[in-house]
């Protein structure tokens, strides 16, 4: 069977491979190479070694964006997961109206980042109008706004995954805990949370990757204002590429660094998941 199938390579693999080369392989290889070059268009690239990487740190934009991204991600990941888990607990009690609540909480997840960003920009500005200020007057407003926006968007998604996890906890286990005299708090900490650990890992993975790579929402909500203080890494890279002519190489070097950071986070999370799976 393998042998006959093998001859069908052009039909089964080639279309995907061609598309994948144009969208990913060639741009990726060129991207790594160009991060060591000075260029404006791709054709006039000139090899300059590590200069672009040194220039990243010539001003504080990248470091600031990194700090903002980390601060934002930690707060957003914690709040999203805690609220989502609490909602999932509330919606697995077999109450009336559960489906309606689930429908509403999940909906914001389907709205695109650009549109979400502008909806919240208008809302927050309308609230701040009463205090005669705007979203871009103070970096703290942008920071809080972004955290609230991401909560609004992602709580429903994570809630759905937690609900699926909680529904898989065997009822016998919970009843056994009750018979042994465990309080509902003890049941939660000692039985439910360990049993939904796989869901928690998935949700952490999804929130970390979504928060760390956030771009659309950041662009639409504040676009980095005031004075780049609310710019996250992806937006800073974008601005370096397209904001100043002559800095394309630095932008590409920042992108490579960003890729390495994201890869390290993803791989360490994967390793962590693996070690947890062994325990269970």
């Amino acid at each position: 069977m393998q042998k006959t199938l093998k001859r069908y390579f052009p039909i089964f693999v080639l279309p995907t491979l061609i598309a994948f080369s144009f969208a990913f392989i060639i741009p990726f290889v060129m991207g790594v190479y160009l991060s060591f070059c000075k260029f404006k268009t791709i054709t006039n690239a000139q090899f300059i070694g590590f200069d672009n990487y040194i220039k990243i740190f010539a001003n504080k934009d990248f470091i600031n964006a990194f700090g903002f991204t980390v601060k934002f991600s930690i707060l957003a990941i914690l709040t999203i997961n805690i609220f989502a888990f609490a909602l999932a607990m509330a919606l697995t009690r077999k109450m009336a109206g559960t489906n309606l609540f689930r429908t509403v909480f999940f909906m914001p997840n389907l709205i695109g980042g650009i549109i979400l960003g502008y909806i919240w920009q208008q809302m927050i500005n309308a609230v701040l109008l009463k205090y005669e200020t705007t979203l871009v007057a103070n970096a703290t407003y942008g920071f809080i706004g972004l955290v609230v926006l991401m909560n609004w968007q992602m709580i429903g998604y994570m809630m759905i995954i937690y609900i699926a996890g909680l529904q898989n906890v065997p009822t016998e286990l919970i009843e056994a805990a009750k018979i042994d005299g465990a309080t509902s708090w003890q049941t939660l900490i000692k039985v439910k949370i360990p049993m939904v650990m796989p869901s928690i890992t998935i949700c952490l993975f999804l929130t970390v990757s979504n928060c760390f790579k956030l771009f659309d929402q950041n662009l639409a909500l504040t676009s980095g204002a005031p004075s780049k203080k609310t710019a996250m890494l992806a937006l800073d890279i974008y601005n370096t590429f397209y904001g100043r002519s002559g800095f394309e190489g630095v932008g590409q070097a920042k992108a490579v660094l960003f890729f390495i950071i994201v890869a390290i986070i993803a791989l360490s999370q994967l390793a962590l998941t693996r070690s947890k799976e062994v325990e269970q």
Binding site: I237, A255, F258, V262
Partner: peptide, 14 residues
């Protein structure tokens, strides 16, 4: 695991 920013410039030029 590769973020879009890594390939966006080269990909759009290509």
């Amino acid at each position: 695991i590769v973020p879009f920013q890594m390939v966006m410039f080269t990909m759009s030029k290509l």
